[in-house]
Design a protein around this nucleic acid. Structure first.
Length: 874
RNA sequence: GCCCGGAUGGUGAAAUCGGUAUACACAGCGGACUUAAAAUCCGCCGGCGCAAGCCUUGCGGGUUCAAGUCCCGCUCCGGGCACCA
């Protein structure tokens, strides 16, 4: 074997071996336990970034570990290939999104291969291919048939200059990203999936996801947002243009605080609410206010922090219990998309209403009391919003607590036929129509006579033309007559294709099931999916905690209801990996913003402790600021995985990634840390070389380690390795790979110091180095593969069994206990491993440190924690 | 604003069920080898103190024989908030 560690050679040879043996190609095999390990597939943005390397290394460690444990392991890979960045690149470079995307896929695939991931490439898919998205279209049509999908209007960001719909991302400070024009809200038709029909099940089944992080489940539960309350109506006789009372003469609202209904002093409706629009007709000021609300953000974060504003409509509705007239206001904080787009205003017991009432001098009437706390109108206090009080100033409801009051009030409202208890969800239906080119075409044909007609199954897929180059001024499909013009499937008259495409979240909602289907199957999924699914381990960024994961869960349940699959949840275990951070250097130009520079463009000053104190631009000495932030193209602080692999090899990159931080935490990039990982792997290689040249030859013809009584130093060494193995196995179970990496370092430290003379020592080292190589192999598969083979352990480490600690190696005669006096560490105590409690107590009381620190007092209590410590209280 | 997460040496971090705080590594310092450098190897490395010892896990309280870990109240930092993926 080579005496120098040459990662390029080793890695090429190992990867060739895996390729030629098709080591990671798998098929369903009912005789073995399966392990489906899935990493979130990448968007083909150009090249891999460190976040990908981290994500896929975690998946690969788990895959290889389980493979050695005897599982039938599926680890597939594919491409989330539709999306906005390809259109942006097209606008910038005049390249069709398809070409840009396929070129990126080719490059990134080669990068993934060079990292040595144990991927079954025969199952590769790209969501932008007709073979894949055909099934998006097919299942969409099934959803239409079942009523899971429906057409209704949606509110979008509209750029009036480009005449196009903008993504939230393309709206900057309320203006279009290219034109700078003030963005409007506009209602257009689109397709919705009724995820709300599944809200109850999506919430309830969270309890079954024992392998998910609690916080992700909590985020989903909050997102679904089940609240129980009362929906009731304020009656009115406000007539619309047709002379009929608007909405049947009822202003419906939803409240979780029906117990405060007697404190209603106003109602507030959303700007788009029919009453608001009606009132605006004769009221220019109100019309202008509604117009202004249209330009406002609908993002929850903005809604919550913006100044609450409103205007009275001059309209009044009737309080259902008191009969009083209540004025209707338009409020910019009321969302048309939640509930009925209207709320009752109880300023005394709702913080938002309180602020609103103070601002517009609306009456505030206390109707709940907590203890004998005094209500004051000066400022909001925490207890005003509490459910722990009893009703006051509420007529017949006085004295009732929250629950009793809600029940009584709901009953009275129901008796009038204008109210009932109701469950309200925050979750809204999923609008999937996107007015964009680079996506899956929605399979609908619009006919003047027949309306919106589904494309018949035998005409699927509706293929997206791949040669369009968007210019930013709208969907280029509008100019493609060959795509647009089709005969109506119903009547045969000329008709037009739908040009909207599907949200890319559709693509990623079921790709895991397609991987698990026989390649090229002419079905959306086949029986093989029921073997591999559900995914045993899913790995990806926490940023997907809500949308992607919720949509995938929804999609699975729809597929189950369509009889396509037998499982009800897609992902059994979920690991959300942290982001990769690096220093970024910038200066703030006049006029705002930040200009970022590459580290190679500047001189960095550090203090004696190695902390960055400042940085200046090489070319002109400009003083720069710095921040630790996520690696990103726009901040010029990304480290290219390619150069890392070329300089140190994939194993070093993988080892550093696993060692630097636990998988769920953010990881700070460190060039020195990479060097350290490389240094460690070099030492592993050198030890392998030492073993081959000086140690292995001492092993006799007959092995004698099993059952042998080892000398103390050798037994201690062997015990240490087996203890470290036990720890590493425990940590692998916890998916805490950084301490697995550190265990391998500790093993090497011990091996380098171990006795190495004589047959027994050589055999012990052989056993222990074999353990190290196998524990290391999921993290750094190439070097482990090479050493395993070169040192004669076997042909292929992938086929080796995962090591387990031996009881015989772990036993010890004596243990060391820590000795505490009054909770403070004062010494240590060596006792026989099986010493009874009273013997330990006696030894502890007789210890010189006990006598010294008790200072003549008697011991009042002795606490013995077996195997750990003794605490003497005196 | 709401929801979620986090805070331990100069740095990344470890400590499994409340039981030796700072494992492993990085940086730094000292030494060996070398004509020299790199590489490698050995040693030191939380603070105060001559020492005995005392103090130390963001801050302030509490529970306990024993608290980084549990409870109460704060501070600061990060993430998500529905058309980016």
């Amino acid at each position: 074997m080579q005496d120098k560690y040459l990662p390029a050679d080793i890695e090429r040879a190992a990867q060739q071996h895996w390729d030629s043996t098709e080591a990671f190609r798998v098929t369903a095999d009912a005789s073995r336990p399966k392990y489906y390990c899935l990493s979130m597939f990448p968007y083909p943005s150009g090249k891999l970034h460190m976040g990908h390397v981290r994500n896929y290394t975690i998946g690969d460690v788990l895959s290889r570990f389980h493979k050695m444990k005897g599982f039938n392991v599926l680890q597939p890979m594919g491409w989330d290939a539709f999306g906005l960045p390809a259109e942006n690149a097209a606008i910038k470079n005049q390249v069709p999104p398809a070409k840009w995307t396929y070129d990126n896929i080719a490059y990134m695939k080669q990068q993934l291969k060079s990292l040595g991931f144990a991927i079954d490439w025969s199952r590769e898919l790209a969501t932008c291919t007709p073979e894949y998205y055909k099934w998006n279209q097919w299942i969409f049509l099934r959803m239409l048939e079942k009523g899971v999908a429906e057409r209704k209007t949606q509110v979008v960001n509209w750029d009036p200059v480009d005449q196009t719909v903008l993504a939230n991302e393309q709206v900057i400070d309320g203006r279009g990203w290219r034109t700078g024009a003030v963005v409007e809200k506009r209602e257009i038709p689109g397709y919705y999936l009724k995820i709300t029909d599944y809200a109850d099940e999506l919430l309830g089944d969270l309890d079954e996801l024992g392998g998910w992080p609690e916080r992700v489940k909590l985020m989903q539960a909050n997102w679904i947002g089940k609240s129980t309350g009362v929906r009731f109506a304020f009656k009115h006789d406000i007539a619309g243009d047709d002379g009929q009372a608007i909405n049947d003469g009822k202003l419906w609202v939803f409240t979780t605080r029906a117990d405060t209904i007697m404190g209603v002093t106003f109602c507030a409706v959303a700007a788009e609410h029919p009453l608001a629009l009606h009132a605006a007709k004769g009221n220019a000021e109100l019309a202008a206010f509604i117009e202004k609300c249209k330009h406002g953000s609908v993002m929850e974060a903005d809604m919550a922090t913006m100044e609450k504003e409103g205007l009275p409509t001059g309209l009044f509705v009737t309080h259902p219990l008191t009969g009083k007239q209540v004025e209707v206001w338009v409020g910019n904080y009321v969302l048309m998309s939640y509930g009925d787009g209207a709320v009752m205003g109880v300023p005394a017991h709702d913080e938002r209403d309180f602020a609103f009432a103070k601002k517009y001098s609306l009456p505030i009437e206390q109707v709940v009391a907590v203890g004998d706390k005094a209500y004051s109108l000066d400022a909001w206090q925490e207890w005003y919003g509490s459910k722990d009080g009893v009703c006051v100033n509420s007529g017949k409801y006085d004295g009732l607590d929250y629950e009793a009051a809600v029940d009584a009030i709901a009953t009275d409202l129901a008796a009038q036929g204008i109210g009932e208890k109701k469950v309200q969800w925050r979750l809204r239906d999923w609008g999937i129509s996107r007015q964009r080119y680079w996506g899956c075409p929605i399979p609908i044909i619009h006919c003047d006579s027949c309306g919106s007609v589904p494309v018949p199954d035998d005409q699927l897929p509706v293929v997206l033309p791949e040669d369009c180059v968007p210019d930013g001024s709208g969907n280029p499909l509008h100019k493609r007559e060959d795509f647009l013009n089709v005969p109506c499937p119903c009547c045969g008259k000329p008709a037009r294709r739908e040009t909207d495409t599907m949200d890319t979240f559709v693509d990623s909602s079921w790709y895991y099931a397609r991987y698990a289907t026989t390649f090229g199957a002419d079905k959306m999924v086949d029986d093989e999916t029921n073997y591999w699914m559900t995914v045993d381990q899913y790995i990806g960024g926490i940023e997907h905690a809500i949308l992607h994961l919720l949509y995938s869960r929804f999609w699975t349940k729809v597929m189950r209801d369509l009889g396509l699959v037998t499982y009800r949840e897609p992902f059994a275990h979920l690991l959300t990996q942290g982001m990769v951070l690096n220093n970024a250097f910038f200066h703030k130009p006049e006029g705002g913003g930040k200009n970022y520079y590459w580290e190679s463009e500047l001189d960095v000053q550090k203090d004696a402790k190695g902390q960055i104190t400042g940085a200046t631009l090489k070319k002109d000495g400009t003083v720069l600021e710095h921040e630790l932030t996520t690696m990103s193209k726009s901040k010029n602080n990304g480290v290219d995985p390619q150069s890392l692999i070329e300089q140190y090899g994939a194993d070093t990159a993988r080892f550093f990634m696993m060692f630097a931080a636990p998988p769920e935490q953010t990881l700070e990039w460190s060039d020195a840390g990479v060097e350290g990982a490389y240094r460690f792997l070099r030492r592993v290689w050198s030890f392998g070389h030492l073993f081959a040249s000086e140690i292995r030859g001492q092993i006799g013809a007959q092995r004698q380690l099993a059952g042998a009584k080892l000398p103390d130093d050798l037994a201690a060494f062997r015990r240490e390795i087996h203890l470290l193995l036990k720890q590493a196995n425990y940590d692998l179970g916890k998916q805490q790979f950084n301490t697995v990496a550190s265990a391998t370092m500790k093993m090497l430290n011990a091996l380098e110091k171990a006795p190495r003379q004589g047959a027994l020592a050589a055999e012990t080292i052989e056993e222990c180095f074999g353990i190290l190589l196998r524990v290391l192999s999921p993290l750094t598969p190439h070097i482990s593969h090479a050493l395993w083979r070169d040192l004669g352990y076997g042909e292929d480490i992938l086929k080796a069994a995962w090591p387990e600690p031996l009881d015989a190696a772990l036993v010890q005669d004596e243990v060391e206990l820590m000795l505490q006096v009054n909770g403070k560490l004062r010494g240590a105590l060596r006792v026989a491993a099986d010493a009874p409690k009273d013997a330990i107590e006696a030894a502890a009381l007789a210890h010189e440190a006990t006598i010294k620190f008790l200072e003549g007092r008697a011991a009042k209590k002795v606490v013995v924690v077996p195997g750990r410590l003794v605490n003497i209280v005196g």
